[in-house]
């Protein structure tokens, strides 16, 4: 009889564990908050909020004006970063190179947004741009000077930025693709250049094929 109870207890505990883990990880899909965030963002497909950009050539315009019905390939960075950002931008440059020229500027534009507007003034961005071969037109680097707009954008796209007190930030990084209507379409692993490029190219091709 006792054995019986024990066995039931074990089964109950195991069931509880399975349910707990299933709920806690979105059905064994997301074990880190980052993957959970990606999963959730792709489900929700949030709209890119209205923000005003100031780019490396001192031009100011809203995101909508910049996108102008095109796809936007997006990253978040800051120029004083010595760890991930150079890698992120370098990889972005490679994706840029892998997208067929015919689409660039016409169907898709590239944008690197700095979340450190205090230090990343247009002059700094202009210099930083040249390290990665961004042309300043079809691939622009810009800051958002309005703090509230910046916060809203980071929140909406789930970018977490924590200052470490020594002038640096710890932040999560990814490639973002914004659709023609301003919705988030894709979030891609920035370390996997080929996959990101082919995903983007496939979307563009499909569009062109229609």
């Amino acid at each position: 009889m006792k054995k019986h109870h024990n066995a039931i207890a074990i089964i109950v505990v195991l069931l509880f564990g399975t349910v707990l883990f299933y709920i806690g990880t979105d059905g064994f899909r997301a074990f880190t908050a980052e993957s959970a965030r990606t999963y959730k963002l792709l489900q929700d497909k949030p709209v890119f909020p209205s923000v005003t950009l100031e780019d490396s050539q001192n031009r100011s315009y809203t995101f909508k004006e910049f996108a102008d019905g095109k796809y936007v390939f997006l990253t978040f960075m800051y120029t004083s970063c010595t760890t991930v950002c150079p890698q992120l931008e370098m990889n972005m440059a490679q994706v840029y190179a892998l997208i067929p020229d015919s689409y660039i500027g016409k169907d898709i534009v590239f944008l690197s947004i700095s979340f450190d507007p205090e230090r990343d003034d247009p002059k700094t961005l202009a210099k930083y741009r040249t390290y990665f071969g961004s042309d300043g037109e079809t691939w622009r680097m810009a800051r958002i000077t309005n703090k509230e707009e910046l916060k809203e954008l980071l929140d909406r796209l789930g970018v977490v930025v924590i200052p470490d007190g020594n002038g640096n930030f710890t932040h999560n990084s990814a490639f973002y693709l914004i659709g023609k209507q301003g919705h988030l379409l894709e979030m891609m692993d920035f370390t996997n250049i080929d996959e990101a490029a082919s995903t983007v190219a496939a979307i563009l091709n499909e569009e062109a094929g229609e």
């Binding site: 006792k2 109870h5 024990n6 039931i8 207890a9 074990i10 109950v12 505990v13 195991l14 509880f16 564990g17 707990l20 883990f21 806690g24 990880t25 997301a30 074990f31 880190t32 908050a33 993957s35 959970a36």
Partner: peptide
């Protein structure tokens, strides 16, 4: 009655501990 040999209890303990070791749970 329900924990006569200690196995269910220790399993529950382990499950909870492992659950909180998932990076995501700590963030959440």
């Amino acid at each position: 009655k329900w924990n006569s040999n200690g196995v269910p209890g220790i399993m529950l303990f382990s499950i909870i501990l492992v659950y909180w070791m998932i990076p995501r749970t700590m963030d959440e």
